[in-house]
Structures are given as structure tokens and as C-alpha cells.
Simulated scan of single mutants.
Amino acid sequence: MFNNAGVVGDPDQSILTFTNENFKSVFETNVYGGFLGAKHAARVMIPAKSGVILFTASIASVISIESTHAYAMSKHAKLV
């Protein structure tokens, strides 16, 4: 299962103006969505004793590039 969930949020907002709702939306898609995908894939893979679950992170999680703070943080959450 290739888990490739990813949204950026509002790219026109800085960390000072990024809303709580926007931040929550990014995390719900990028982190919680990834968890749910893995959970449901595992329900099939574990009984079959076969399968692989991969997550896409982002270079934004390790170096500074133009992306929202919420995006960078959510993609870093997938690395740990």
C-alpha cells in the first residue's frame, strides 16, 4: 500500500496568520489520513502475512523550502 496523502494548506498565509482550522485540516489529511490508510491496509495484510505499507514524506520535512509550516511539520511526523 502506497500512502501518499498530502495537502499544503493555504500557501498565502504565514505562520502568524495560518488559522487553527487550516493547520488541523493539513494534519488530518497528511498524518491522520495516513494512519487510517495504514490501519485498513494492515487489516488485510496481517491475516495474509504479506504486504508492505510505504509512506511518502517530503524534502520539506528536513530542509527549508517554500511550503507552509503545517505541511513541513506533518511530513516530518511521517519520518518518525
Rank of each mutant, 00 (worst) to 15 (best):
N20Y: 10
V31G: 06
T17W: 04
Y71N: 05
A41P: 02
S58V: 11
G33Q: 12
D12C: 00
L36N: 08
L54G: 11
F27V: 10
V7W: 07
M1C: 05
H69A: 15
D10A: 00
V31W: 08
A70L: 01
P11N: 07
G33R: 02
K78N: 11
I53C: 07
A57M: 07
P47Y: 11
F27T: 03
D10H: 04
P47K: 13
M45W: 05
V26S: 01
L16I: 00
A48H: 13
G33M: 10
I65A: 06
T56V: 15
K75H: 02
N30Y: 07
F23N: 04
T17P: 09
P47Q: 13
V52E: 11
I65V: 15
V62M: 06
F55Q: 14
N3R: 00
S58E: 11
A42W: 03
E28S: 13
F27C: 08
I15R: 06
T29W: 05
G6N: 11
Y71S: 11
S50G: 04
M73D: 04
V44H: 13
V31F: 14
N3V: 14
F23W: 15
H76C: 13
G9T: 10
A57Q: 09
D12H: 01
F2V: 15
F35G: 01
A41T: 09
M45Q: 10
R43M: 11
T56D: 10
